[in-house]
Design a protein around this nucleic acid. Sequence first.
DNA 1: GAGTGGTCTAGACCACTAT
DNA 2: TAGTGGTCTAGACCACTCC
Lengths: 269, 269
Amino acid sequence: MELGKAEEIAERLRTKILDGTLAPGTKIASERELSDELEASRMTVRHALEIIEGEGLIIRYPGRGTFVSGAQERVLIEKGREIKNVSIQGSELRLSGSFLKDMERIGRKPYVRFLEQPSLVPATEEIAKSLQIPTGTLVLKRYRLQLADNLPYRIIESYYPSDLFGELLTIDIKDKPLFTWLQEKYGIRVSKAREILIARPANQNERQLLRISSGSPVVAFERTVWTETKRVVEWARIIAVAALYTFTYEYDIDDWNREAQNNDGHQTN
Amino acid sequence: MELGKAEEIAERLRTKILDGTLAPGTKIASERELSDELEASRMTVRHALEIIEGEGLIIRYPGRGTFVSGAQERVLIEKGREIKNVSIQGSELRLSGSFLKDMERIGRKPYVRFLEQPSLVPATEEIAKSLQIPTGTLVLKRYRLQLADNLPYRIIESYYPSDLFGELLTIDIKDKPLFTWLQEKYGIRVSKAREILIARPANQNERQLLRISSGSPVVAFERTVWTETKRVVEWARIIAVAALYTFTYEYDIDDWNREAQNNDGHQTN
DNA sequence: GAGTGGTCTAGACCACTAT
DNA sequence: TAGTGGTCTAGACCACTCC
């Protein structure tokens, strides 16, 4: 495979970072220095840096420099049903979905910054449809940014039916999980969730909030949570820094699906 | 918000595409033409195109031109358990996982190109671990590219235990789904799957095979498929063009998980 | 004030596509 | 052969950080 000059430079830097020659937190040579050393134009060096930046290997700060990322470790998000009696590779796998637990697991300090005060807002058509309520109904909105060690991880914009959650505006449930509180207060248990994911480059607003640069991908997903009685109790739009996340899903292949599931395999035309 | 020139051009094009002025499939002006019209250098125009390409709004083909794609043409991949008795928004949602079916649904002609002839290869450590067999055991390898209307969608590198699938080297099961054949031949039924996803920019090899440009994200995922008896019958590494995919997963929130699931919600420091 | 990354310019050559 | 996107060059100015 013939590599372009930028890819070649990216590969060199990638190797140095992954084998530890460049330790996390290290400031690497400036674009102009690299440009001289490697006999490439600055634009080419920049392109190489963009490539490995998107891979989460470096972070660039205007006016300061480019640093080896301390965050090679992706957060592992796991969803679905446990596969029992199976020795799972990697073995550190376990079910989880909690930002706090994920952060603890990799030894980071979690922090949540509210981008807006939680409030009651009329449901837009989209929100109403998602929560299965009439348009215009008041819903509890929360809009927040989650960070770990001051590094932004994701933006969460979430909506809840106000008859169940409205009083959260006035009372403080401290560290009690929201759905645990829901069960204790109303005896309502959450039961199922659906997540719809797409991956795309961050837009300008997201880049600012998540402090990533142009071209870095995010995973944008919508999450809907149902109770045992099929009522929707949460709908959220979440923007996660792609380089910091790994998503794991386990699912049953049911009869309906089994046939379709592997048409993949053998279509040769 | 002060926008740069490239962002400004991106916004102009984005608007024209989203409001229908530029219809899906339309060829848009070449980079050099845009450069003249908009009084920007070609590099600046290119940057603008890279931005909206990453958003899935356009597709660029070397030597041919740039075309409006329309984010609505993402393939919808759905996994997990059906949520019954729930009126699902969008309503076109249904369980599926088949490349062929997904393509049919959006009216495209599917095509599969084998990048290598299927063959028996000794399992590397990673493959062996994934298939739960000893390192070096012969496994059936398939390495192929899936396209629709000549547009590459994803690269699939898959491995199967050779005692079950080895004879596929000599016999032809035509259009019969692989796992349907497995069941008819051996009475073995697949039962569960796990997918581990990350999103990242494509590397050069992937860009060439998938014909996408630098900076475009891909979703890279590993899929493991188990039988009812917990035997692994497939392990695959899949690289999908992010702009062409939407992933949907549904899962149960079990008791183990329920508490963790929403710690998110209310941690304010 | 010196150095940094972010952006932009006006060229250039290449491989590929279409005709 | 003409046109396209992909890559690269050698400059330039800007806002910002650090000293």
